Simulated assay, not measured.
Amino acid sequence: MDTRVYLLAATVFLAGIDENICIGILPSIATDLHVSLASAGQLTTIFSCVFALTAFCVSAWLSHRERKRLLLYALGAFALSNLLAAMSPGYGVLFAARVAMAASCATVILLATTLATELTPPARRGRAIGIVFMGISGSLVLGVPVGMVINNWVGWRAVFGCIAILALPLTGYLACRLPLSASRKSMSVRTYWTQLTHPRMLTGQLVSVAMIGGHFTLFAYLTPYVQAVYSPGAATLTLLYVAFGVAGVIGAWLGGWFSDRAGASRALICCPAVFLLAMAVLPATSRAPLLFLPVMMLWGCLSWSISPIVQNYLIRSAPDQADVSIGINVSAMHLGVALGAGLGGLLVDNGALLSTPWAGCGVVAIALCLAWRSTRSASAISGEEPMHRVKAGE
């Protein structure tokens, strides 16, 4: 694998910290800014909404521009938005900073994913995408737990300050290592329309929305959920996030590997099926606490497998429209985050925190139905034979 793919994964790692950090420090933000837990949770919802909108709107615009320079500009905006969050005097300013963070993170992750596929042969693109998404899951292993420790020591503002500082050397390193990207023809609005109206591609995109939405129905409120069920100390809670993140890193790599080896269609169906089973078992572990950790890790592993699986599936379905497929899918993923966090917030506001896993299971069941429907659509956009008839690994 090209070592520059790992550099792009490191970039996504930093963006992933921004995306996920509020989940680990949610109670501290709510207490310090004198807002409800559900209101603090909306910092995740607004992040995902803006992220989804940005990824959807700019992917075609980015397709015919020099990506390296745009990536460096996006990282600069990323650093400034984190600095604003660290200095925010109240909830309103922090909310605005999260909007700016989301727009810059969307651009960074979109460009990093596209550059990784350009640096990699077609037969290994699933693994390349998996490595890039290991950066996001890796942020849960190191970034979120370290952020929680920093929060416990000196407060949540220092977390955003540290992220801003770390972005500076990474930007310089990328400027030295990445090549200038080749120019491509501009994608038209018609390309978007084709993607969003073709049954195979649309249902494939909706798999991301539904599965990640089901996941975030619980995950956005995982800290208060675990506190309500098990009452762990701060150190134990941090270790749980480390374990979840380790599982996520493994899952991101396994998702890309399994998609390349077993076939993208088969992987698209298997992942939500097993994920649904794992999420359904989670509530039962309240009576057997020793089972919670392994079940949670399986849940975490599968939650990070779906992104490389769906993206590899979409790229193989329409190779000539990879830029738009990735852009729409990054948007779809974060639409799922927003919907899941919003649904979880409604449950929490109505005193139904412990029902979030079951609500998530219902949404994931929809993802499984969509995956089945997508793999049985008549043909790919490119006119190729349906992927469920293609040999695994082709």
Score class of each variant (00 low, 15 high):
1 M>D: 05
15 A>T: 09
24 G>C: 02
24 G>S: 03
29 I>P: 03
37 L>I: 13
41 G>I: 00
43 L>R: 04
48 S>V: 06
51 F>I: 04
55 A>E: 03
57 C>P: 08
63 S>N: 11
63 S>F: 07
63 S>H: 04
76 G>F: 14
86 A>I: 01
89 P>S: 10
90 G>K: 09
91 Y>A: 07
97 A>Q: 05
97 A>E: 07
99 V>E: 00
102 A>Q: 05
106 A>T: 04
117 T>G: 09
118 E>Y: 06
122 P>F: 12
125 R>S: 01
134 M>L: 13
139 S>P: 07
141 V>I: 12
149 V>T: 14
150 I>V: 15
152 N>L: 07
152 N>R: 13
153 W>S: 03
162 C>S: 12
164 A>M: 09
165 I>Q: 07
166 L>W: 07
172 G>T: 08
174 L>S: 10
175 A>V: 06
180 L>E: 15
182 A>H: 14
183 S>T: 12
185 K>R: 15
187 M>Q: 11
192 Y>C: 08
203 T>Y: 09
204 G>M: 04
212 I>D: 02
214 G>I: 07
215 H>Q: 12
217 T>I: 15
219 F>R: 07
221 Y>R: 07
222 L>A: 06
222 L>P: 04
222 L>N: 06
227 Q>M: 10
227 Q>W: 02
234 A>T: 09
240 L>I: 14
241 Y>H: 14
244 F>G: 05
245 G>K: 09
246 V>Q: 14
247 A>F: 04
247 A>D: 05
249 V>F: 13
253 W>E: 08
256 G>R: 01
262 A>R: 10
265 S>V: 08
270 C>N: 11
273 A>D: 00
282 L>C: 05
283 P>R: 11
284 A>E: 10
286 S>Y: 05
289 P>N: 06
296 M>R: 12
297 M>G: 05
299 W>P: 04
300 G>N: 12
302 L>P: 04
304 W>I: 03
307 S>T: 13
308 P>A: 00
312 N>A: 15
312 N>M: 07
314 L>G: 05
314 L>C: 05
319 P>D: 13
319 P>L: 14
321 Q>G: 11
326 I>L: 15
332 A>R: 04
332 A>K: 01
337 V>I: 15
354 L>V: 11
355 S>Q: 15
357 P>Y: 11
360 G>A: 13
365 A>T: 00
367 A>N: 08
370 L>D: 00
375 T>I: 15
379 S>L: 12
381 I>R: 10
391 K>H: 12
392 A>N: 14
393 G>E: 05
